[in-house]
Amino acid sequence: MIRKLLLLCLILAFTFSCAQRKVSSPAGGALEEGASAVAPGKEEKEIGATKEIGEEEVARIETAEIEEPKSAVLTEKEREEILKDIHFDFDKYNIKDEDKPTLRRVADWMLQNPNVRLIIEGHCDERGTNEYNLGLGDRRATSTKDYLVSLGVPESRLQTVSYGEERPLCTEHNEDCWAKNRRAHFVVIEGE
């Protein structure tokens, strides 16, 4: 009995270890070994179960709509002279000295018009990568907001949004254009 088992072990060991195998079948596929020439017609019985291939259709999904807040009507003077964009250096979000007078005017105007809220948009040029630029735009909008708060504008009347490089003002690919796009932009919203 034991001899028979040992013999079986030997045979098993040989069948498994003789071949320096480089390739083998995936688990479950019962495939024959060692056939050097396989005749047609013989296969049919060995192929086994047919693999059925199907595919689910792509479902269409409705997008939830959210209304944009209504921006206030401003005079030309307000748009062109007071609520002017301020600008930033590449990959920077500190407020530049040259923009501080602009922010002073924005703060004064906010204090004179207590019934409006201000949305500060942070923008970047196209040279960075999209997602990082959303972070950078966020920092630009926030440092602008912090500066306005330091000038006395209540924080509750200020909101920020980053558009990264997604909404360029200027679409040419040169430094003039990039400089214009690295900006904080002001949008005035009616009401508290």
């Binding site: 060692g34 056939a35 296969e43 192929i47 059925e52 291939i53």
Partner: peptide, 28 residues
């Protein structure tokens, strides 16, 4: 029906039958 033969091992390493609707030719 496909057959994949390994020359080095001198044997067939895959044989399988597939079935699909015509519209699923690409996933097949």
């Amino acid at each position: 029906i496909v057959y994949l033969y390994d020359v080095v091992e001198a044997r067939k390493i895959l044989q399988r039958r597939y079935s699909a609707h015509k519209r699923h030719l690409i996933p097949l």
